[in-house]
Design a protein around this nucleic acid. Structure first.
Length: 276
DNA sequence: ATAGGCGCCTGCTGGC
DNA sequence: TGCCAGCAGGCGCCTA
């Protein structure tokens, strides 16, 4: 579910709630497996450590610890990472609970579909290895025009597929790919290598612009997503095409169309985003 | 070597 | 009302 703006919102929420606090104890709250396996050994290493920072890389959430190790969370489609009062009843699908000190609160990881994960990494090298193995590409706000153009030129795929490729640019998912293509007035099925220089630059800026606006609105909540403080996002109110199949394009009034592309639902305006 | 498809899970919605 | 297919903010593995 969560793409870069949602993950960024979680990170901004969690930063003041976690930084300087100790993870007194960690325990599993379910026996069900997450995408990446829980390792009992790291629970012992993490217990008693203080969180020194909270940051994001692509759609990954990083909790830096005072022993230079790190916890890394991925929210998958339905993951939630929130700080709540320890007395609050455990919500369904809660998988991990971290007791915090000082204060009577807990960091909890919920995930109904369990496509998400929480893992522990021993040192900065191990963390880098995780992102290197994933082939994680540049952050969209730091994507150099020449690098972007080279990525487009080097593939036969549709531009929509390229936007979803985390090795090309990190953090874009299905919603913001569609919204960025609409803003750039580009048909999602256009071959990436066929984009002109101006079109490529328009799209690069549209991606950054849409993501920034979504961050400003605390991301998009369609179903499950909440920030680190438990509050939903507001950017779903700003969608121009995503999830608006059959509704009027806000620019020209033509009905928004939906097709299957790169294995994902893809929404676009057939007039504003011409195929040719 | 690239690109597409499928599987992983659960929950919700819409059509019959 | 009930059932069931289809769909969902993602990724990783397999195959052609």
């Amino acid at each position: 579910m969560p793409e870069l703006p949602e993950v960024e919102t979680v990170v901004r929420d969690l930063r003041p709630l976690l930084t300087g606090r100790r993870l007194v104890a960690v325990r599993r709250a379910s026996d069900l497996a997450l995408r990446r396996p829980w390792d009992v050994a790291w629970a012992e290493r993490v217990a008693g450590r203080t969180v020194t920072g909270v940051r994001r890389r692509g759609k990954w959430i990083i909790l830096d610890l005072d022993d230079h190790c790190a916890l890394v969370a991925h929210l998958g489609m339905t993951g939630q990472l929130t700080v709540v009062p320890a007395a609050r009843e455990l919500a369904g699908h809660t998988h991990l609970v971290f007791d915090l000190a000082p204060g009577d609160e807990q960091l909890r990881f919920r995930d109904s579909r369990r496509f998400g994960s929480v893992t522990w990494h021993e040192g900065p090298e191990a963390l880098e290895a995780l992102f290197r193995d994933a082939g994680l590409g540049p952050e969209p706000f730091e994507l150099a025009p020449a690098v972007w153009r080279a990525s487009l030129a080097g593939t036969d795929r549709a531009i929509k597929a390229v936007l979803l490729d985390q090795t090309v640019v990190a953090g874009v998912g299905n919603i913001y790919a569609d919204e960025a293509l609409y803003r750039a007035r580009l048909h999602p099925a256009r071959r990436a290598r066929d984009l002109g220089r101006a079109e490529a630059e328009r799209l690069r800026k549209a991606v950054a612009g849409v993501l920034q606006e979504a961050i400003d609105k605390r991301g998009s909540t369609i179903r499950n997503y909440v920030g680190g403080n438990g509050a939903a996002g507001d950017y779903q109110e700003e969608f121009r095409v995503y999830g608006r199949t059959g509704e009027a394009c806000p620019r020209c009034g033509r009905p928004v169309e939906r097709v299957r592309l790169a294995g994902r639902s893809t929404h676009y305006c057939p007039r504003c985003q011409p195929a040719g």
